[in-house]
Amino acid sequence: MLLPAHDYVKPRTLEEGLGVLSRSGAAVRLLGGGTDVTFNMRNRLMQPAVLLSIRELPELLGVEEWPDGSLRIGAACRLADLAAHQAVNSRHPALAAAFKAVASSHVRNMATLGGNLNLDTRCWYANQTQEWRAAKGGCLKTGVDACHVVASVKTCVAINNADTPPALIALDATITLASAGGRRTLRLADYYRADGVTHTVRRTDEVLTEVIVPPTPDRLVFIKDTARLGIDFAYGTIAARRAADGRTRLVLGSLGPAPVVLRRAAVIATQRGLADTHIEEAAEAAREDLGVVSNLYTPAAYKRDLARELVRRALTALRDMP
């Protein structure tokens, strides 16, 4: 099936692209590797007037190691290149694992980090063909005041199903958003909104150009749970970080409209340590904190159990790391 009619625009410089966005950003869809956008356009979930190709903009490419030990990763870097990158692997092997966890090698040869960080939210209703969706009427995502997933909600509960945000959030990564008006930097943790329709704070005139990962001696673990690696999106992911003094951070992905930073479980792990009984306690807290998240793939009760299991596995892995 052909993609919806649109104009294809490939700017030579970032400034040229930002000019297009400042004039007509709301009608533009940014195109990185295309693996999410092409799919959603074919299903008519995205019907932009303009497709703006940013994949080859020099400002969005390259991995740099800064003198302070930070890594600067261009948003248009391909996930395959990042998963294999020497500096990424030597500094943050769990981050490299998160890059490699995304889909198949085929997809990672195309998909960009910026594309994964902006991956559209997904649910079992919206991610169907236009004809399939039409049989049930529209939803919040297509401008209709209805949700077929959780009938009573007023805010879209589609899942943020991206594999890379939890590890980057756990690492305190920051991102740069560029617009014709200037640049702003924010923590990736502050980038996401728990709303499946507008799931980031990116303005329509902005481009996410780079990710900065600060150095850390802390341990980091990343786990993705799914049915079939290479094909399936995650049922749930977790990134867990622990400092030498015991400070622990836990970030869940794919279990709601935004990545979830688990506060209570992290406090328990930080204050009481990682003996088996305390890991159980932290895991149980995570289960209770997740709330009602019925949506894609699995029921809410399963997701809460999965959150508990992911916390248990991640904390155990942190403890047992050599």
Binding site: K10, L31, T38, S53, M110
Partner: peptide, 19 residues
Amino acid sequence: TINNARGEAILSCLTPALE
């Protein structure tokens, strides 16, 4: 699946031709 100039596997159905 096709191969790009670097001999890598690419999904031709998930990329606009003009890219």
